[in-house]
Computed example of a mutant assay.
Amino acid sequence: STLSYPLVVLGVIFQALPLIDLGILLFSLVVLFQLVTLPVEFNASRRALNTLESSHILDSNEVSQSGKVLTAAALTYVAALATALLNLLRLIAIRGNRD
């Protein structure tokens, strides 16, 4: 993602659609990576909660509260994916204005 924005900016400045397209392609890979890792993060939170519960490290009230925290942590990845998707749409709109 670090390289995609400069490519889009350079493509806009020099009116080079291939640079914009390359920047969009690179950012699309970032979005794809975030989409693929999303189930992994939810699974990690669920496994952590199961481990805490089965190890009897926490009492039942603490397990419930830990579940809320772990769910909130996993939801940050949903927010990151939504942000990345919106940024991708913005880049595509920028490219569309250059045709």
Rank of each mutant, 00 (worst) to 15 (best):
Leu3Thr: 07
Leu3His: 14
Leu3Tyr: 12
Pro6Val: 00
Leu7Ala: 03
Val8Met: 15
Val8Pro: 08
Gly11Cys: 02
Val12Arg: 13
Val12Thr: 08
Gln15Pro: 01
Ala16His: 14
Leu17His: 09
Leu19Cys: 07
Ile20Asn: 11
Asp21Ser: 07
Asp21His: 11
Asp21Glu: 09
Gly23Phe: 06
Gly23Gln: 07
Ile24His: 14
Phe27Cys: 07
Phe27Val: 05
Phe27Arg: 12
Leu29Ile: 10
Val30Lys: 13
Val30Ser: 05
Val31His: 09
Val31Tyr: 11
Leu32Thr: 02
Leu32Phe: 10
Gln34Val: 00
Gln34Trp: 04
Val36Met: 10
Val36Glu: 12
Thr37Leu: 04
Pro39Phe: 04
Pro39Gln: 10
Glu41Gly: 06
Asn43Arg: 13
Asn43Leu: 15
Asn43Glu: 12
Asn43Ser: 10
Arg46Glu: 10
Arg47Val: 00
Ala48Trp: 09
Ala48Glu: 13
Ala48Asp: 05
Leu49Pro: 02
Asn50Leu: 08
Asn50Thr: 04
Leu52Pro: 03
Ser54Tyr: 03
Ser54Asn: 07
Leu58Gly: 01
Asp59Ala: 04
Ser60Lys: 15
Asn61Tyr: 11
Val63Ser: 11
Lys68Cys: 02
Lys68Pro: 01
Leu70Thr: 10
Thr71Pro: 01
Thr71Val: 06
Ala72Ser: 08
Ala73Val: 02
Leu75His: 05
Thr76Lys: 12
Thr76Gln: 06
Ala79Phe: 12
Ala79Arg: 03
Ala80Phe: 09
Ala80Gly: 00
Ala84Arg: 14
Ala84Ile: 04
Ala84His: 12
Leu86Gln: 12
Leu86Pro: 04
Leu88Trp: 13
Leu88Asn: 08
Leu89Asp: 01
Leu89Met: 09
Leu91Pro: 00
Leu91His: 11
Ile94Thr: 06
Ile94Arg: 11
Arg95Asp: 03
Arg95Thr: 00
Asp99Lys: 14
